[in-house]
Simulated assay, not measured.
Amino acid sequence: MGHGGDVIQELTTDHREVDDLFNQFDDAAPGSPDRKRLVDAITIELVQHSVAEEMHLYPAVREHLKGGDALADKELADHGRVERLLKNLEALDADDSVFDATVRELRDEVTGHVDDEENNLFTQLRTHVHQQVLDRLGEQVREAKKTAPTRPHPAAPSTPPANKALAPGLGLVDRARDYVTGRGQ
C-alpha cells in the first residue's frame, strides 16, 4: 500500500509503516545503534503523522461526526501520551537500562491508538463523511507532513489555529537539527 488516496488510506499506510519500523526494531540487536536509529525513524513518522492529524483530521472529526468533540479529544489525549514517551526516548541511548521498556510502552500506546482509529474512527468517517471531503483531507494531511516537525514537542499546541501557525516553524528547526546531526538519514 503506497501513499495517496483519501485520508483513511493515507493514515492507514502510515500505520503500516510504523508497524514495520517496530518489527525492524525487534529484529535489531539489543543495545545496538540500529535500535536508536529505528527509534528516531519511528519518532519522525509518528510526530509528522500526529501533527497532520491534529491540523486536519481532528477538526474534521469535530465538524462532521456526531460526538466528534469527544472523539477528537480522546485522540488528542492518546497523542499526548505518545509524545511524552517519544520525548523520554529522545534523551535515552539504546543501551540505557529503560530504553527497551520505554519502546515497549510506546508500542503498546501506538497499537491501542491505531486499533481504535482504524476500527472506530475510520469506520465512522467512511460512513458519515462525503468521499470528496475524505479525498481533500488526504491531500491536506500529505501536505502537512511535508513541513511538520520531526521531533516531539509536548508543550506545543495540538489544536487549530495555533498548531497550524507553529508546526511549520518547528518543522523547519527540527529539519535543520536533523541535517546537522545526520538524524533520520
Rank of each mutant, 00 (worst) to 15 (best):
T147I: 15
L57Q: 06
I44R: 10
A176E: 12
L71M: 12
T102L: 15
L170M: 06
P152S: 13
A148D: 00
T181H: 01
L89G: 09
H56K: 07
L46T: 06
L170C: 02
V39Q: 10
T13H: 14
D73F: 09
I44H: 11
H130I: 00
K74S: 00
E143L: 11
T127G: 05
L121C: 13
R37Q: 15
A165E: 07
L106Q: 09
L76R: 10
F122A: 04
L21D: 00
Y58I: 11
R177V: 15
Q132R: 13
G4W: 12
L89H: 06
N23V: 05
D96G: 05
K145P: 09
R62N: 05
D69M: 01
Q132I: 07
P30G: 03
H49P: 02
G171E: 10
Y179V: 04
K146R: 15
M55L: 00
A94F: 04
H113I: 07
H153R: 04
G80C: 08
G169W: 01
A77L: 03
F25W: 06
V82M: 15
A167S: 14
A70D: 15
R177Q: 07
E75G: 03
D20R: 10
F22G: 06
P30I: 04
H153G: 14
L92A: 11
V98T: 14
V51D: 02
D78T: 09
T12R: 08
H130W: 01
A176Y: 13
T111K: 07
V141T: 02
E17I: 05
F25R: 05
A94R: 01
R142A: 12
A155C: 01
L86A: 09
L65Q: 10
G31Y: 03
D69I: 06
G67E: 02
T159K: 10
H79L: 06
T12I: 05
V141F: 03
A41V: 09
Q140I: 02
A167T: 05
G169C: 08
L166D: 10
V39R: 06
L85S: 08
G112D: 12
T102M: 13
I44D: 07
Q24N: 11
E117H: 12
L38T: 12
A162V: 12
A70G: 11
G182R: 10
Q48K: 09
H56D: 14
K145T: 11
P154D: 01
D20P: 02
R175H: 04
D174H: 12
E45W: 13
V82G: 01
V141K: 09
R175T: 06
V47R: 04
V129H: 01
D78I: 00
A165D: 00
M1H: 02
D69H: 08
V103I: 15
L125E: 00
F99Q: 10
V141C: 01
Q9A: 14
Q48I: 12
I8G: 02
A77S: 06
L65T: 08
D69Q: 13
Q48G: 13
Q124E: 14
D108F: 10
A148L: 03
M1R: 01
F122S: 07
D26F: 05
D34R: 04
V173E: 11
V61M: 08
G182V: 08
E75K: 08
P33W: 01
L57V: 15
R37K: 14
T127R: 14
R81H: 06
Q9N: 12
D116G: 10
F122W: 13
D178R: 07
K66A: 09
H153D: 11
F22N: 09
